[in-house]
Write a protein that binds this DNA or RNA. Structure first.
Length: 501
RNA sequence: GCGGGAGUAACUCAGUGGUAGAGUGCAACCUUGCCAAGGUUGACGUCGCGGGUUCGAGCCCCGUCUCCCGCUCCA
């Protein structure tokens, strides 16, 4: 087992032990690709989410010309009219039935395969081949079965009854019966709207939050007095039937996204693309992803999504997770989606989605720059980044969260449960509890309480001791150094305010 | 989907056919005078789940679920 894997195992164990992340439906044996956030994980995630919302919607960034950006937020439905996903390209393009070959391990689109079938003798195997490439099948007929291709006729595999599959020889094998039945490789979760499970009622759980924004583009324009360039932001869950959920919560089937669709003039797209790439990278650094573990990568042409092909491309902000090292895993993608989505939705819905520019008296489809961040992945990256081993301290490991995202901001303790120290500490706790995420603890020895707080990633602990009784000061103990200094008990609130800025 | 490995307490793990274990953590009390101190006590397990073999299964066999690793996949 590698050192990296070992540290990942330690992170997973700590997350379970301290209530960050639990396996979903664990008492039933779990369910592949789903995870639950425990009390500390939920708070951590909410803190990251709230910072993003604050820095994006409530206090949007300053643009390249020093202007305050125009940004509004929405929260759209997870289930939309199924035609949305036809327009977006999620239905139709990527949900073709596939056939696997158990022998060659190759996978084929069902409708891309044809078979050569003997004209009269049903006992002779059928030879599958890829559309337009019949030669390998002809060779097998001639060399291995000593028959003439003339005796065979080509038929699409889709017209062959499934019960005949055991007589079909796959394109890349000599054995028969190695092809599986065609299976849907649908990325989207399918469901039914209404009490009756009727094919007319099919709907899908959204595979990305972006479409909800495009669907509301017109409503936002009509009601919010915004002008291009402006952005619409959204945080929400999305669902994908990933082929292989893997790497803890990194690739799970239910996850949360934090997305901006930034609408701008087509000839300004490059400028905004560069701006958002830079801004989003800086944001991740500000919440705690520092140093060499953060990487920026531009997509090659061949890996661009269908909506990005004509634009400036896609830029990934990546993090070096323990399981991906020395490589990186995607944390956020900044894509130039061009005007693909608005055009598609105008075509499919027949709603007029062009923007009328009152200044220039012209009508056009804005281009879209999309910074799309994974909230769940951000949580994981920040957990991995925070995880720190230290054989010198009792807990051996601690979580070095930025104070602004730490699930518990401070612990408040009496040094010992004597001489009224607990009462003073509890009074301090009462004063702070509605403004800060503080915890009060009198149990056991102070060393154990510090160790517990280290593992939870609590950056500060305030301890009432006998000196407090003399001069109204308490000790503040810093998680990262374990050093202590004294502050006046009246200054604890302002201390926290200063350290959360 | 394929191949390999694993699943025993909250965590880490021991236990190779004969009474279910350890350390840590957790909880309570005593003791405390700043880093999981010490002492006493306590709770926590249908050994992943289901079948089978056996007088007897945590251990052997079959199935299944989940996790890990490698392929595959990932618009």
């Amino acid at each position: 087992m590698s050192e990296l894997q070992k540290s990942m195992d330690e992170i997973v164990a700590l997350c379970k032990r301290r209530g960050f992340i639990y396996p979903a439906s664990e008492i039933y044996g779990g369910i592949n690709g789903f995870w639950d956030f425990g009390p500390l994980g939920t708070q951590l995630k909410n803190n990251i989410r709230d910072l993003w919302w604050r820095d994006t919607v409530l206090c949007p960034p300053i643009g390249p010309e020093g202007e305050i950006l125009s940004m509004v937020g929405v929260d759209t439905s997870i289930i939309q009219n199924p035609r949305v996903w036809e327009a977006s390209g999620h239905v139709g393009g990527f949900n073709d039935p596939m056939v696997d070959c158990r022998e060659s391990k190759n996978r084929y689109r069902h409708d891309h395969l044809q078979v050569l079938r003997h004209r009269s003798d049903e006992s002779i195997p059928m030879f599958a081949f890829l559309e337009g490439e019949p030669e390998p099948a002809y060779r097998k007929i001639k060399k291995q079965h000593k028959l003439s291709p003339e005796e065979f006729t080509a038929v699409p595999l889709t017209e062959i009854p499934l019960s005949y599959l055991e007589r079909v020889i796959g394109p890349d094998t000599d054995k028969k019966g190695t092809l599986t039945e065609p299976r849907q490789f649908n990325l989207m979760f399918k469901t039914y709207v209404g009490a009756v499970q009727d094919e007319d009622a099919v709907a899908y759980l959204r595979p990305e939050t972006a479409q909800g924004i495009f669907l509301n583009f017109k409503s936002v324009l009509d009601t919010m007095r915004v002008k291009v360039p402006f952005g619409i932001a959204q945080i929400g869950r999305a669902f994908r039937n990933e082929v292989t959920p893997r790497n803890y919560i990194f690739r799970s089937r239910e996850f949360e996204q934090m997305e901006i669709e930034w609408f701008c003039q087509p000839d300004q797209a490059k400028k905004w693309y560069d701006f958002w790439c830079e801004h989003r990278k800086n944001w991740w650094q500000a919440v705690g992803l520092k140093g060499a573990n953060l990487n920026l990568r531009s997509h090659g042409k061949e890996e661009l999504a269908h909506y990005a092909k004509e634009g400036c491309g896609t830029f990934d902000i990546e993090y070096r997770f323990p399981f991906s090292a020395p490589g990186f895993g995607e944390l956020e993608g900044v894509a130039h989606r061009t005007d693909f989505d608005l055009r598609q939705h105008q075509q499919y819905s027949r709603a007029k989605l062009e923007y009328f520019d009152p200044d220039n008296q012209e009508r056009y489809f804005p281009h879209v720059i999309e910074p799309s961040a994974g909230l769940s992945r951000g949580v994981l990256a920040l957990i991995c980044e925070a995880f720190t081993t230290d054989p010198e301290r009792p807990s051996k490991m601690f979580m070095k969260f930025n104070p602004r995202i730490a699930p518990i901001t401070a612990g408040i303790f009496p040094l010992v449960n004597k001489e009224g120290m607990a009462e003073i500490a509890e009074k301090l706790y009462q004063e702070l509890r509605c403004r800060y995420a503080v915890q009060f603890d009198v149990k056991q020895t102070v060393g154990k309480r510090y160790a517990r707080m280290d593992e939870a990633g609590t950056p500060f602990c305030f301890t009432v001791d006998s000196q407090t009784l003399q001069d109204q000061t308490v000790t503040v103990r810093y998680r990262d150094t374990t050093q202590q200094e004294r502050v006046n008990i009246d200054k604890v609130a302002s201390f926290l305010q200063d350290h959360l800025a």
